[in-house]
Amino acid sequence: MRSLTSWMKQARSLISPSQPECLFCGRRGRPSPEWPEICLHCQSSIPWIRVPRCQTCGRHVGCPDCSRSHGPIPIRCNRSAVAYTSEMREILGQYKYRGNERLAPLLGLMLDRAYALLQQEQSGQQLNEALQSNFFSKPFPIRHSKLRMRSNLWQADLLVPVPVSAVRLSERGFNQAERLAEVVSLRRGIPQLPLLVRTHHTAKQSFKSRRERLADMKHAFAGNTDSAVLQSLKEHLDSRATHQLEQRPPQIIIVDDIYTTGSTIRACAEALQQLCRSQNCLAEIYSLTWARS
Rank of each mutant, 00 (worst) to 15 (best):
residue 4 L to M: 07
residue 247 Q to R: 13
residue 52 P to Y: 09
residue 157 D to K: 01
residue 286 Y to W: 13
residue 102 R to P: 00
residue 91 I to Q: 15
residue 15 I to S: 07
residue 270 E to F: 01
residue 1 M to T: 04
residue 249 P to I: 07
residue 219 H to W: 06
residue 64 P to K: 03
residue 270 E to P: 00
residue 76 R to Q: 15
residue 231 Q to V: 00
residue 193 L to G: 06
residue 151 S to F: 11
residue 44 S to A: 11
residue 161 P to F: 00
residue 33 P to K: 11
residue 28 R to D: 08
residue 41 H to Q: 10
residue 148 R to C: 13
residue 242 T to Q: 11
residue 49 I to P: 02
residue 187 R to F: 04
residue 290 W to F: 09
residue 151 S to C: 14
residue 136 F to Y: 15
residue 215 A to I: 02
residue 83 A to Q: 14
residue 110 M to Q: 09
residue 81 A to I: 00
residue 268 C to S: 07
residue 266 R to P: 00
residue 130 A to N: 05
residue 287 S to L: 02
residue 216 D to K: 02
residue 133 S to H: 13
residue 6 S to D: 08
residue 216 D to N: 15
residue 12 R to P: 02
residue 216 D to P: 02
residue 46 I to G: 07
residue 287 S to N: 04
residue 207 F to E: 15
residue 141 P to F: 13
residue 25 C to F: 05
residue 6 S to C: 00
residue 242 T to M: 08
residue 249 P to D: 02
residue 29 G to W: 10
residue 71 G to L: 10
residue 55 Q to R: 10
residue 290 W to C: 04
residue 211 R to K: 15
residue 60 H to P: 05
residue 289 T to V: 01
residue 212 E to D: 13
residue 87 E to V: 03
residue 23 L to K: 10
residue 154 W to L: 02
residue 208 K to S: 09
residue 25 C to M: 09
residue 145 S to C: 05
residue 59 R to V: 01
residue 16 S to L: 06
residue 287 S to H: 00
residue 274 Q to I: 08
residue 207 F to R: 12
residue 289 T to R: 02
residue 284 E to S: 10
residue 182 E to A: 11
